[in-house]
């Protein structure tokens, strides 16, 4: 039985089947970073929205309330966590496996990369019947991750700490490290405006990211959501890429 199967393969000169159904892609620090960032970004988005457009007025005396104080505290704490986690993630890009680097350096000058981006785009426009298999990110995802997430997050961290430095005061670490951002944009209110636009930029990223992750998990040929939990990429078929 086993012999005859091999025989048929040789006879019809079929491509060699890759019998690999699971690859370890996301190491523990990457997964931990992902979920820490998820929680922080949700916190930052909600608290940030209410810092810009506060909730209805609290009843009672001022001494009995500290709502804005708590909201701002949550925002600043989540901001610190997301920034430190982001630095940790950059460190892991240097020491981790090759998939840990995908986010930060998409091969923008490789022709094949752009061809595959084109293939992915056609797949999303329902012009390709079958998607390709990818162990890490597909090229389109890699591109989106870089331009939406990495650049967006960097922008939010820099403008965020510049605004935070205003509260800490002149001469504080945040003012020394990021205070230059404020005259660069014009004045404080301009930085606030751009930070607000950055929030909406990340909201759009999160919406797209979650939708695409669920859709790919269902329709593509590999696992997605479980991969970010357990780290292993499962393939659904044995056909070649």
């Amino acid at each position: 039985m086993h012999d005859s199967a091999e025989q048929t393969t040789a006879e019809h000169d079929k491509p060699i089947t890759r019998r690999q159904t699971a690859v370890y892609v996301y190491e523990a620090p990457v997964r931990l970073w992902h979920w820490v960032t998820v929680l922080s970004v949700i916190t930052l988005g909600i608290t940030g929205y209410f810092i810009g457009v506060p909730l209805p007025t609290m009843p009672g005396e001022a001494i009995d309330n500290y709502l804005m104080g708590y909201i701002r505290f949550a925002h600043f704490t989540a901001g610190y966590i997301v920034a430190i986690a982001f630095i940790g993630r950059i460190y892991w890009a240097l020491v981790g496996n090759s998939h840990a680097r995908e986010l930060f350096c998409p091969p923008l000058f490789r022709k094949r990369f752009w061809q595959e981006v084109g293939h992915e785009l056609r797949w999303y426009f329902f012009l390709e019947k079958t998607p390709k298999k990818y162990i890490g990110h597909n090229p389109l995802a890699q591109l989106a991750m870089f331009f939406f997430f990495v650049l967006g997050m960097t922008f939010m961290i820099i403008t965020g700490f510049a605004l935070y430095g205003e509260g800490l005061g002149q001469g504080s670490w945040a003012d020394i490290a990021f205070g230059w951002v404020i005259p660069l944009f014009g004045q404080s209110q301009d930085v606030h405006t751009w930070h607000r636009l950055g929030m909406w930029f990340l909201v759009v990223f999160v919406m797209t990211h979650v939708y695409v992750a669920i859709r790919e998990d269902i329709m593509s040929r590999q696992s997605l959501i479980s991969t970010m939990v357990g780290g292993w990429r499962m393939f659904k078929d044995d056909r070649p890429d």
Binding site: P54, L55, P56, T57, M58, A62, I63, D64, N65, Y66, L67, M68, G69, I71
Partner: peptide, 10 residues
């Protein structure tokens, strides 16, 4: 203090 408490003129 009214800002921190979340008390605003609407």
């Amino acid at each position: 203090p009214h800002f921190d408490a979340g008390q605003f003129v609407e």
